[in-house]
Design a protein around this nucleic acid. Structure first.
Lengths: 348, 348
DNA sequence: TTCTTGCTGGCAAACGATTGCCAGCCTACC
DNA sequence: GGTAGGCTGGCAATCGTTTGCCAGCAAGAA
């Protein structure tokens, strides 16, 4: 129960009969000290269970070997892959991951970012609620990588869900649907905008009438409203902004006795845990979220390990694009359509 | 893009025309300095966007205001509530949460705990794969709270899933089932043992034949084996170790055309995301995981904020039970049964 | 023998914030 | 007027580690 005092470098040095500086070098500078001395120091360190103080190192170096993952809602299944992907990649490089839940609040997010500065070397920002300007400002204090967002000068990873949605509408068109609803997401959602921009021309090209509804909050509870709107619009298929909304739609349709996919087809987006559990199993756009997480961590680590503190030289007008990845275009992750039982030929 | 240098206390002091020590006190010791001076310092600090260095504070105080949540698998839905609960409670108290995924590996877990020491003030250990001895040893270096585990001298939170399972078997008994299977979890699972110990006498009391199978890995892929075993045993109901296993069982039964709950009833445990999405919706034991997370964080914070570093006095034989909560019995969180469509009267 | 060179290890100054101690000053009381 | 005591703010040490600089020493070259 009692937490005992940790041995410090000084203890090691004393026990090994060398100076603190020598002990430090023995442990971190291979070859800098005599092999015998080094071995002795390392033996003592091991025996005493010495672990260097992260705080002291951080204080001196300004590096914490810690990276934050900032999410609007840790319990949203969409982010699980992101957590796992970043977590795995960061651990490989000896970084510690801290998880920050901003509770879908702009204020909490801004505040979190402010407090994170100095505590972490960088952060992966997913589904941020902040404006481009706010994020750009935060990036001045902290190495950032954004997920599903494009902000000039800030590295990012994009999940091409818009492309996946186009695949979905093509799939529906191929099945013979001609009038399709899109139940859109939050007005502030960057990816919702991208999807609309992709779906409209695609529908036109395919000769499909696209009925756009929304905005809907991307949760199950919005399902009834979205389902009713789709039914009222007389479509034979509805594409939901995400799987959670699609679940809600399926529930509602089941409750009012509408056959899926006989009377109406339903598609989702994200392929979250549960998409294959619902009945009928959901046809949805699968995006490689875990790989996106790894990629985001990769980009961040490249900046951190690449150029010191992730900082360009502070005093000025050096060439900004020499860093390559730093100002490069965001990385686009392809998505694909998972066809399950919730889509079929229209019977009307 | 460029990360600018953070202003330090020295910068603030210089700008305000006072000594560093005065600036420090102006910001942290209300009343210790002249009101005018304090106001001036605070104004400067605000203007320059001063944020105290967490590393420097940690170095001096030995406290990091950081707590780790250690999980075998971040992507397991059972833990989502725990993540959320601890995260929320910790943030309320100004702590930062770091998330450590041990990938179900004893070595990774032990290693993680070792590295965490010194980086965090304490840790919440959930579903640990370590032995009691290993955990007790780790607790000597780090304030710990365990979830679903009882280790003498270490505060813990228990989810009374065993009690929930008893409710489930009572529910099945009331429906008229007389021969029931229990598809058990991993052999190393502490809570699986507790459940068996509770189910056997309960079955006896209810006059039910209990067929215990397993161990099964608590994932969907184990479902087919568990389902087949239950069918072979000729039971009219099967209680699964957890919901994931129950999902797999339902899938298998659906695939081979066995009616649920007509021919066989199925129950799960945990009420994870998706339990109400499957068809038939799963009757399961709901445990207040998020509240358990809050409680675990509470216990940890009580120790941390209560007595310095969570340490009892290192040199000895003081009274150990004066601390109250520290050596108290683990907190037991009650569970309840959620009745859905996967259980019904046996037709046989 | 003397000078150079390379290896080894110690000294001490950082990093940024906190805090015990002390000095100066002002007020108030005798 | 003298002294005690309260208020304010500065000095300097401290936390644990890293690292530039230098000194001592030994070996090799001239």
């Amino acid at each position: 129960m009692a937490v005992r005092r940790q041995p410090t470098l000084r203890d090691i040095a004393a026990a090994a009969g060398v100076a603190v500086s020598t002990a430090s070098r023995a442990l971190t500078r291979p070859g800098r000290v005599n092999a015998d001395t080094a071995e002795r120091v390392m033996a003592v360190a091991k025996e005493l269970g010495y672990i260097p103080s992260a705080s002291a190192r951080a204080l001196l170096s300004g590096r914490t070997s810690t990276v934050a993952l900032v999410l609007p809602d840790v319990t949203n299944p969409v982010f699980f892959g992101l957590v796992r992907g970043t977590s795995a990649r960061l651990r490989e490089s000896g970084y510690v991951q801290v998880l920050a839940d901003t509770e879908e609040s702009v204020e909490v997010e801004a505040d979190t970012l402010r407090k994170l500065r100095g505590q972490v070397d960088g952060a992966v920002l997913a589904a941020s609620r902040l404006t481009d300007e706010q994020i750009a400002a935060a990036a001045a204090d902290l190495a950032l990588v954004v997920v599903n967002r494009t902000i000039p000068g800030i590295p990012g990873v994009l999940l091409d869900t818009a492309g996946g949605m186009v695949q979905a509408i093509e799939h529906l068109a191929a099945l013979g649907h001609t009038r399709i609803a899109y139940a859109g997401g939050p007005a502030t959602s960057w990816s919702d905008r991208r999807r609309r921009e992709a779906l409209v021309p695609a529908a036109e090209r395919l000769g499909i009438e696209l009925v756009v509804h929304g905005p809907y909050s991307p949760v199950r509870d919005s399902g009834p409203a979205a389902a009713d709107a789709a039914l009222a619009a007389g479509v034979t298929a509805v594409m939901a902004f995400n799987d959670l909304l699609a679940f809600g739609i399926l529930e509602r349709l089941d409750a009012v006795g509408v056959d899926v996919p006989g009377r109406i087809s339903v598609t989702g987006c994200d392929d979250i845990f549960g998409s294959d559990l619902v009945r009928p199993a959901l046809t949805t756009v699968r995006s490689p979220v875990e790989r996106a997480g790894r990629m985001a961590a990769d980009l961040l680590l490249a900046r951190l390990d690449g150029d010191g503190n992730g900082a360009d030289d502070a005093d000025g007008d050096a060439q900004d694009d020499a860093e390559g990845a730093v100002t490069a275009e965001p990385v686009l992750m392809p998505t694909d359509l998972v066809q399950r039982a919730s889509t079929g030929r229209p019977t009307a």
